[in-house]
């Protein structure tokens, strides 16, 4: 999952970004309004964490301009706690509102929920055949046995599971698991996919040559699962 954090307070930005990275997110950072808006419009993010009081463009302004084009889930993270502020933020198209100071676990849970809802999956667990992907605990089990995945492998499984039945391009996966500071080669995606197949079975992810990857949609009869 790739998120953008727009926050003018350097130390807060640093700690939020770090916490998100430790939880498997690829994180882009922006300290000013203009920079934030530019990044939000340029890259595909799974969610944006947005402060309201920013130098240059304010959070409200960013939200307004962003919503003209994109539906990226936005979580407002603000010290402004009045009902009026919250209502205004939500009215402008924010999906959630969290008031500073906040518990880190709450931020992570809300962000997670936001991303799930945007993918049309309300429950934190996604079951694909005998494989269960728990987005909350970031754990994958097969036949009840837990399978160890690296953070990036999990990020790819998470993305494909959330987009189950939809073809996901390699670029999209690449953009998803690496933030702006990474300059890894894009064939690393293939390496990760290959590793996932070793752990979860060959048929778990289907390759559409030249197009991308897909976890096939659930077959009509519930008895058969994709292996």
């Amino acid at each position: 999952m790739r998120v953008l954090v727009v926050e003018d307070e350097a130390e807060l930005l640093r700690v939020i970004a770090r916490a998100l990275r430790e939880n498997g997110y690829a994180v882009d950072e922006a300290r000013e309004g203009e920079d934030g808006l530019y990044k939000a419009m340029t890259w595909t993010y799974d969610a944006i964490v947005l402060d309201l009081m920013l130098p240059g463009l304010t959070g409200w302004e960013i939200l307004k301009r962003l919503r003209r084009k994109l539906q990226t889930p936005v979580l407002i993270l603000s010290a402004r706690d009045t009902v009026k502020d919250r209502v205004e933020g939500l009215d402008l198209g924010a999906d959630d509102y969290l008031i500073k100071p906040f518990a880190l676990s709450e931020l992570l849970a809300r962000l997670q929920a936001l991303i799930r809802r945007a993918a049309g999956k309300a429950a934190p667990e996604i079951t694909i055949g005998d494989i269960v992907v728990n987005l909350r605990t970031r754990a994958v089990t097969q036949d009840g046995r837990s399978v160890e995945l690296t953070a990036r492998e999990f990020a790819i499984v998470e993305l494909l599971a959330l987009q189950r039945g939809v073809l996901v391009t390699r670029t999209r996966i690449y953009e998803h698991i690496f933030d702006e500071n990474d300059d890894s080669l894009s064939n690393l995606v293939e390496v990760h996919i290959s590793n996932i197949r070793k752990k979860l079975g060959k048929d778990f992810i289907t390759t559409r040559r030249g197009q991308g990857y897909i976890i096939e949609a659930e077959p009509e009869s519930p008895s058969g699962g994709s292996r």
Binding site: E9, E11, L12, V15, I16, R18, A19, E22, M53, A79, R80, D81, I99, K100, P101, F102, A103, L104, S105, L107
Partner: peptide, 16 residues
């Protein structure tokens, strides 16, 4: 805002 921001830094750092 000014009071909540350092509080948020404190709390998030401690949480993390």
């Amino acid at each position: 805002h000014e009071l909540r921001t350092p509080l948020a830094i404190l709390r998030t750092n401690a949480d993390l």
